[in-house]
């Protein structure tokens, strides 16, 4: 039966109203000295250039080529971040305590935040909409293999699926499997293959 659930799209009037309301709020906050005219753009720029999934991609690529680094990443994600040539603070906001779990041919990991949208900002940036969607949050904890198949990840029944619910305290993410056909690639080439979805466990890495 077709569903009437609107997903993420609503009527244009509703978006126009929200756009006006948030602009009204931001302009009043600037006028009253709560924030400056540059505060919001400064924050958005930070997530475009310093804190984003490009950091996670570099960590995964390095772990794929360096077994000692992979061991460090799995044991202490924040120490692994410190060991990278990252901008200062990549164990900062919303990444103070991060943990990563490894996908293997026998075990597949996927992350969720059933209560809201907790996410490791320094390594993955900001969460995509599907992660914040109540439908994903409700279903993946109970029928993870079916949900993964809807994302295009087909797992054999013999593969154990581990679901990691992120919390305010601990932020989880996934070390995906290195795909075949990538022998001889540089870390930069490997990093370019990674997507946020692969590092959340709802996609595999493709060449």
């Amino acid at each position: 039966m077709p569903s009437n659930y609107p997903g993420f799209k609503y009527g244009a009037d509703r978006e126009t109203f929200s756009a006006a309301k948030v602009k009204a709020l931001e302009s009043l906050l600037i006028e009253k000295g709560v924030i400056t005219g540059k505060t919001v753009d400064t924050i958005l720029g930070y997530f475009e250039t310093e804190m984003g999934p490009f950091n996670g991609a570099k960590l995964v690529a390095k772990a794929w080529v360096d077994p000692a680094f992979k061991k460090l990443l799995l044991e202490d994600c924040n120490a692994a971040c410190e060991a990278m040539d990252f901008p200062e603070g990549m164990s900062g906001a919303e990444g103070e305590h991060m943990r990563i779990v490894e996908n293997t041919p026998e075990v597949h990991n996927v992350i969720v935040c059933t209560l809201c949208s907790c996410y490791p900002w320094p390594t993955l940036g900001l969460p995509p909409y599907w992660f914040k969607d109540p439908t994903f949050r409700a279903r993946v904890v109970r029928e993870p293999r079916v949900v993964l198949s809807e994302f295009g990840v087909q797992l054999d029944e013999s593969v154990k699926v581990l679901v990691w619910d992120s919390s305010a305290q601990i932020r989880w993410w996934v070390l995906p499997m290195r795909p075949p056909g990538t022998e001889g690639m540089s870390e930069a080439q490997l990093a370019a293959l990674l997507t946020p979805e692969a590092m959340m466990g709802v996609a595999t890495v493709k060449v």
Binding site: G125, P128, W130, D133, T135
Partner: peptide
Amino acid sequence: GLDPITPEIEV
């Protein structure tokens, strides 16, 4: 009784 996942990858 929910729908299939909407894989909207935009933040």
